[in-house]
């Protein structure tokens, strides 16, 4: 409960902080200041909205009105948040975006699918072939079906894979 409250304060604070940033950064936008509304007015309004709602969310939290976590079919309401899984998934996504330009999309994509499925509890020897096949199929479909070439990376020059 206490952890949830701290998180709520932090998120409300983040909203308000984005608002403050909006207000401060808006002053640096160059613009005419005659009687016609320039490029700053709307940012000021948005900044105020964010600051007010962020603070209001913090006040609501302080008064015990916590936000209701969303429900979904696959969400188990009775288990605690598994932060490790979330961290692993974020790491897998980071690895994916770093690797695209290094070893090419097909390998980076296969790693993303495999990493995510494995993290979520799939058996590794089943997830691995699915990941490889899926990535290669998408690569080929993109190159030949849609005419969009994803970076082939290590497969550069390989027929079918390098669009």
């Amino acid at each position: 409960m206490i952890a949830a409250k701290v998180e709520e304060y932090a998120f409300g604070g983040l909203v308000a902080a984005v608002g403050v940033f909006t207000l401060v950064d808006a002053t640096t936008i160059a613009g005419r200041d005659d009687n016609v509304v320039g490029p700053r007015a709307f940012p000021y309004a948005v900044g105020i909205l964010l600051v007010v709602t962020g603070i209001a969310a913090i006040i609501a939290t302080a008064r015990g009105k916590l936000g209701q976590a969303e429900d979904a079919e696959d969400v188990d309401e009775n288990v605690r948040t598994d932060w490790l899984t979330v961290a692993k998934l974020v790491a897998v996504l980071v690895a994916h975006l770093v690797l695209i330009d290094v070893i090419g999309w097909p390998v980076a994509a296969a790693l993303l699918f495999f990493g995510a499925a494995w993290t979520l509890g799939a058996t590794w020897w089943r997830a691995l072939p699915i990941a490889v096949v899926l990535a290669l199929v998408v690569q080929v479909v993109f190159a030949y079906g849609l005419g969009l070439s994803l970076p082939a990376g290590i497969f550069e020059g390989v027929p079918f894979l390098d669009g």
Binding site: H96, I100, W105, L120, A122, L134, L148, L150
Partner: peptide, 20 residues
Amino acid sequence: IPRPYLYAGILLFAALGTYA
């Protein structure tokens, strides 16, 4: 569909759609 594959697929296509 087993959920690990479903959500791994969602992440893969999310990254693909964005990159594209």
